[in-house]
Design a protein around this nucleic acid. Structure first.
Length: 689
RNA sequence: GGCGAGGUAGCUCAGCUGGUUAGAGCGCAGGAUUCAUAAUCCUGAGGUCGAGAGUUCAAGUCUCUCUCUCGCUACCA
């Protein structure tokens, strides 16, 4: 593993195409990958970085239905929007693809079939209802009919809500599809499962020892603790079979006869998108994709957020290994989450800094955001972004330390040496030597940190060189020395210029635009990483014009940004809510028996985080109701409250406790819960109608 | 509930296999300086390393218990 890989394939988690990109995404899976890849490119290593939009899955069809449009329209919109967001922050993929493309469908189907032939899946054939009109198999809850026990006409395929009996769809009398209303047919259907338990043994060795097929594959110690920790907990806990297909009409169709209305599970489909993207990259560039996924000298690295660990470290490796011939990841440097101004980032609550909005508000200032995110990247624990911190880092570190240093050097040089790099005498003081040593060692220090996925550390090392430059100028005082010793002044400024040129190289992954500006002014553009460490600016080099590198962020700008957080005022009253359910009848409403009840006792249900066991008084009895509100209310908070009770709901055993009814709750926009409380004066037992 | 990862200076975070007086940046206090974007540099104050117990010559670093935060997962809405 110490040997340099012949080539590296880098992937970033495919962003899900049903919402815009925010800084949490950027800091999690895209900026670190971008830094890593820019570094490798600067070292002239063979590296390809692919990504793309993940455009399948139930969430997208639901969103389309909600907005009254098609899934295609949704993914087209976000595919374009996400690409804009990435390029705004100079996130420079080699190829950005999408999973709804023909190429991807073709490849994913081919891959699935090969796995099928190899016996990677277990098949379960059973009879299931099929809607000929909608051309898909129906999940149990999409079928309604008459309950064989109580004759209620609105029983679902899995349960009759009226009498509470558990049903199977074929027991229903006169079943109907809830999608089209048509009568479904019984058809044979096959479900494909990935039996992950078969793979526990080699996975354990792979994850714990980094050994695969009897060979050392990677150094497990180089993986982050939270990544190996979570993987081991999964494997040790025993892996379950997982269905690899879904009954949906939006996705990669299962390429098997009779599997109409079935698509590949998104977690089978999406990671294969990495391979499709690599193939399409190769096609575009006249290259061969295969070595990037199949050659043993290739290093495969997945950049993701912590919520994706299991899929990338367990499920996808199983699929790749079962297929055979493909490489398994050498590292999965998952980041933790980014919080914002003391709260979790939330798309629905608009508690986020949107990449696109940032670029609109701070045009041309992508380096600033890249710098701040790299400084606070959630590498081993959740991190916190605040606009005040953003301001302070941009102003103090970028503008004052880096921008001002570069400016000092340029101004002094133009003042004393006519804007040309002065000629150094070649004899150095001990102070000079110490600084030259730091200059020589910095590229390796930065590079090592990057190769260990420690980007914050790397940035610290790079900035350390700039800080040392400031210290050097202040201590050597060339503006004083110039009065007595022009050659010494030349030596000082010459070294300061070399420091500047070196800083431009080691900072380039983080600050591509700024580094380019500096390098252009010093005439050191296009130097590879390996040139750094020594003298780069040739004597006599005329310095180009160098504008102010960083503007300060004002208090007003901070205020404006903070005010943007949270629900949009102009959208008030227009909540992003579920569409109304289909019209119902008065009789159906009458079927529900709603009553005022009073909570007389409450306790947590053992072994469940979300459940409270409530004892409620209805005025004519006392009964037990299990309610999933424990995360929002403590038992003592609810005792004595008047609540709205659905009294005639079929009893149901929940976590071992029989629940006789349901307490009605309003769910708030931010995901909270509120009791539906009757007005003052209502008493337990009052009927609601 | 099970599992995983975190809880270190006012703030944001380092501290890699246990080993000298626990570090950085910002902020704060004092000073130096003026080439520079009122920028820079130096010095200092500030921490019972979440709580408690244990192993060890030695623990932020290992073990156990408890507690808080985040994630995965189960039960639910």
């Amino acid at each position: 593993m110490t040997a340099k890989p012949a080539r590296t394939l880098v992937t970033s988690a495919l962003p899900y195409a049903n919402g815009p990109i925010h800084i949490g995404h950027i800091a999690g899976a895209y900026l670190p990958a971008d830094l890593y890849v820019r570094y490798l490119r600067a070292r002239k290593r063979d590296v390809v970085w692919v990504c793309g939009s993940d455009e399948h899955g139930a969430a997208i069809t639901l969103r389309a239905r909600k907005e009254g449009t098609t899934p295609r329209a949704i993914v087209d919109r976000y595919h374009a929007e996400m690409q804009e967001a990435f390029s705004g922050l100079d996130i420079a993929f080699d190829h950005y693809d999408r999973t709804s493309s023909e190429e991807h469908h073709g490849f994913a189907q081919e891959f699935f079939l090969e796995l099928l032939e190899k016996g990677a899946f277990t098949e379960e054939t059973r009879k299931q209802f099929y809607d000929p009109q909608e051309k898909q198999f129906l999940a149990d809850r999409y079928i309604q009919g008459t309950c064989p026990k109580c004759q209620d006409e609105r029983a679902y395929g899995d349960q009759c809500e009226k009498c509470g009996s558990a049903l199977s769809p074929d027991e229903l009398i006169d079943p109907k599809s809830t999608l089209s209303g048509s009568t479904p047919e019984m058809r044979d259907t096959t479900l494909w499962y990935l039996p992950m338990d078969r793979h526990e043994s080699w996975l354990k060795t792979y994850l714990e020892d980094g050994v695969l097929d009897g060979e050392q594959h990677h150094d497990p110690k180089s993986w982050k603790a939270h990544v190996t920790g979570q993987c081991k907990s999964w494997v040790d806990g025993g892996l379950q079979s997982r269905a690899m297909t879904r009954d949906l009409d939006w996705g990669v169709p299962v390429p098997v006869e009779g599997a109409d209305g079935k698509v590949l599970y998104v977690w089978l489909d999406a990671p294969l998108g990495y391979i499709t993207a690599t193939r399409n990259w190769a096609k575009k560039n006249g290259a061969d994709w295969a070595p990037y996924w199949k050659d043993k000298d290739t290093q495969l690295v997945h950049f993701i957020g912590k919520d994706n660990i299991v899929f990338h470290c367990i499920i996808f490796p199983i699929l790749l290994k079962e297929h055979g011939g493909y490489l398994l990841p050498h590292n999965v440097p998952a980041n933790e989450f980014m919080n914002l101004e003391g709260d979790k980032i939330s798309t629905s609550r608009n508690w986020a800094v949107w990449a696109k909005e940032y670029i609109d508000d701070f045009p041309g200032r992508s380096d600033e955001m890249r710098y701040v995110l790299a400084s606070i990247m959630p590498e081993q624990k959740d991190a916190e972004f605040t606009w005040e911190d953003f301001q302070s880092r941009v102003n103090n570190e970028l503008a004052d330390v880096l921008g001002n240093f570069v400016n000092r050097v340029v101004v002094l040089t133009s003042k004393y040496f006519d804007g040309k790099a002065p000629s150094a005498s070649g004899t150095w003081t001990s102070t000079d030597e110490a600084l030259r040593e730091l200059m020589a060692s910095t590229p390796a220090a930065v590079g090592d940190a990057i190769e260990r996925y420690r980007f914050r550390d790397a940035l610290q090392h790079a900035m350390g060189l700039v800080r040392a430059g400031n210290k050097y100028l202040t201590e050597e005082e060339p503006w004083k020395v110039m009065k007595t010793d022009a050659q010494r002044t030349a030596d000082i400024l010459s070294l300061a210029l070399q420091i500047t040129a070196n800083a431009a190289i080691v900072l380039a992954p983080f600050l591509p635009r700024t580094s380019e500006k500096i390098a252009t002014a010093l005439g050191t553009s296009d130097l590879p990483w390996d040139a750094a460490g020594g003298d780069l600016v040739p004597t006599g080099q005329p310095l180009g014009a160098l504008p102010i590198l960083f503007e300060k962020v004002t208090d007003e700008q901070v205020e404006v940004q903070r005010a943007k957080l949270g629900p949009d005022a102009s959208q008030e009253g227009l909540r992003d809510v579920e569409t109304e359910k289909p019209e119902t009848s008065f009789d159906d409403f009458q079927a529900m028996d709603l009553r005022v009840a009073e909570v007389v006792a409450a306790e947590k249900v053992k072994g469940a985080d979300k459940l409270l066991q409530l004892t409620v008084r209805t005025g004519y009895d006392e009964r037990t109701v299990v309610s999933g509100i424990a995360e929002h209310f403590k038992p003592e908070d609810v005792v004595g409250r008047k609540v709205t009770l659905l009294a005639n709901l079929a009893p149901r055993k929940i976590r071992g406790v029989v629940s006789q009814g349901m307490v009605l709750m309003a769910s708030t926009e931010d995901g909270g819960l509120r009791f539906v409380t009757p007005d003052e004066g209502a008493e337990a037992g009052d009927i609601i109608r």
